[in-house]
């Protein structure tokens, strides 16, 4: 019985790879149909892998080495440098992240989302970093692509006194809350955000807690904030 099923699944998958997926869709048993679909996905993935392995064999050895060693970040960084030459800070980028100037960030993010080679449609996280007393604040974005399954990290640096970064909330909608949190904790203002206000702390809190030079306020609406009782030290 199992052999019959395996035979059936194999035939259905072969037919589907040629282009006729109705054979799979017409299988009545739900379990068998789902197995056939899973086998089809696996077969397609192997076909792509074979094609990728086939093509470097056709090129010369040098380019194949460099393609294997380049990470996604460098790959995307090269793409970005071609499109936006002044905005990528090549010295500070590494094989793990891409450093960008904030001026054209909105256009770059749109490019990252829409370009067929990138297709970063999922903003995984926005976080802020305080790099120390004398240096700047930094905003870091983690982007991920569902179709190409690659991920990249973007960092944007801004001075402590005038921390303003363009908001990507209109590009990736989830940026709304991420940017509110970064604003709440670091005081980095995101220009173009439709409703930038504190999300975790109360509205009338003073100060940006995750900055290194943060001092807790003494009272909040008459309630004492720091630790109160004696003998707690």
């Amino acid at each position: 019985m199992t052999d019959n099923l395996e035979q059936l699944i194999k035939e259905a998958v072969e037919k589907a790879l040629e282009g006729d997926i109705d054979v799979i869709n017409n299988i009545e048993d739900r379990v068998t149909r789902s197995k056939a679909k899973a086998a089809l996905v696996k077969a397609k993935r192997e076909a792509i892998k074979e094609k990728n392995e086939a093509s470097p064999d056709e090129n010369s050895n040098d380019s194949s080495d460099s393609k294997k060693d380049k990470t996604t970040n460098e790959h995307i960084a090269e793409l970005l440098i071609q499109q936006f030459p002044d905005d990528i800070n090549k010295e500070l980028s590494s094989n793990k992240h891409i450093q960008i100037q904030p001026k054209n960030w909105l256009v770059i993010s749109k490019y990252l989302r829409d370009d067929p080679a990138c297709l970063f449609d999922s903003l995984q996280c926005i976080t802020g970093v305080d790099l120390g007393e004398e240096s700047d604040l930094e905003v870091r974005y983690n982007l991920h692509s569902m179709t190409h399954r690659h991920a990249v990290e973007i960092r944007i640096s801004c001075p402590r006194k005038k921390a303003k970064v363009p908001s990507v909330e209109s590009i990736w909608r989830i940026g709304d809350w991420f940017e509110r949190e970064t604003y709440d904790m670091y005081g980095i203002e995101f220009e173009g955000h439709r409703d930038l206000k504190r999300i975790l702390l109360p509205e009338d809190w003073e100060g940006w807690p995750l900055r290194k030079d943060y001092e807790v306020q003494e009272t909040y609406h008459g309630i004492i904030v720091p630790k109160v009782k004696e003998g707690w030290e």
Partner: peptide, 20 residues
């Protein structure tokens, strides 16, 4: 009762509900 595990560094935690 007294702020719990956040008694020392929790800037956002009320150190004991008997303050209100």
């Amino acid at each position: 009762t007294s702020g719990g595990p956040y008694w020392q560094h929790g800037y956002h935690v009320l150190k004991g509900v008997d303050l209100v």
